Simulated scan of single mutants.
Amino acid sequence: MKSLSQDFEKQQLKVGRDTLFNVLREHKMLTLRKKHSARTTNSYHRFYKYNNIIKDLKVNRPNQVWVSDITYIRTVKGFCYLALITDMHSRKIVGYDLCDSLELKGCVRALKKAIYQAKDIRGLIHHSDRGIQYLKYPHLLGQLCC
């Protein structure tokens, strides 16, 4: 595979990634890889779904709302899953855990790390996408916060 950076420099061209991809796409020179993804959210389950209490909430301070989510990372051996707890006000990641499964234990460890490092979490709302990890055992997550 040839790098075009030297050719661009010789012609005194500055081309960013997005522009390059747009040009390649226009000339039908872009081949896209087939995406393989892991499904991390199951919204169709039999467990109780809590109402979204942060829908119209004005977030104006740190540790008011923490948002949880899980993403996947592709590795040579398959997928691993990164559970993240993000402070909605500062957008800072306050807790995380990397796990080889989508089970609750990764989410709990991420939440424990966030609570351990937090200064004041009185009145904190822990919000998630209502995936099965958070709904199957809500009492376990609730015990960590209270």
Results as ranks from 00 to 15, higher is better:
T31M: 10
R17N: 04
K14P: 04
G142A: 12
R91P: 01
V23R: 08
F79S: 06
G142P: 05
N22E: 15
C99I: 13
Y134F: 09
L102P: 00
I121T: 12
L141Q: 07
S101T: 15
I121M: 02
Q12L: 10
Y50C: 09
L124W: 00
K77I: 12
L57P: 04
A38F: 11
D56F: 03
R25M: 07
L24C: 13
V76A: 12
L98N: 05
L13W: 03
Q64K: 11
V108L: 08
C99V: 14
K119I: 13
D7F: 09
R25V: 10
N60R: 03
I93K: 00
P62F: 06
S68E: 07
R25T: 12
Y137K: 13
K34C: 09
L102M: 06
D56V: 10
L135A: 15
A114G: 03
S101L: 01
Q6F: 11
A38V: 15
E9S: 13
M1K: 12
G131V: 05
I73N: 06
T75C: 03
D120H: 04
L32F: 09
H126L: 10
K14H: 08
Y81E: 02
Y137C: 12
P138T: 05
I93Y: 01
A83C: 08
C107R: 06
N63H: 06
I132H: 02
T86Q: 07
L104N: 13
T75W: 00
N42Y: 04
C99M: 15
F47Y: 13
M1L: 09
R130P: 03
L4D: 09
D87Y: 03
Q117C: 09
G106M: 05
I85G: 02
R33F: 08
H27W: 14
T31R: 09
Q117A: 15
Y137T: 11
D120F: 02
Q12M: 08
R46A: 11
L82D: 05
L20D: 01
L111I: 14
G106P: 02
Y96L: 09
K49P: 07
K92S: 12
D129H: 02
M29F: 11
L141P: 04
Y44A: 14
E26S: 14
Y72W: 03
K58E: 15
F79I: 10
Y50H: 12
S101G: 01
F79V: 12
G123L: 00
L30T: 06
M1W: 07
N51E: 13
V67G: 07
V94C: 00
I115R: 01
W66G: 02
R122H: 15
Q117I: 13
N60K: 03
S128F: 01
C107N: 14
Q11F: 04
V67L: 05
N51D: 14
T40V: 15
L104I: 15
S5Q: 07
N22F: 11
N22R: 15
I115Y: 00
M1D: 11
Q64S: 12
Q64G: 09
M29I: 12
A83Y: 08
M29T: 12
Y72F: 08
K58W: 05
H126R: 03
K58P: 06
S37L: 08
S43I: 12
V94W: 01
R46F: 05
V65I: 04
M29Q: 15
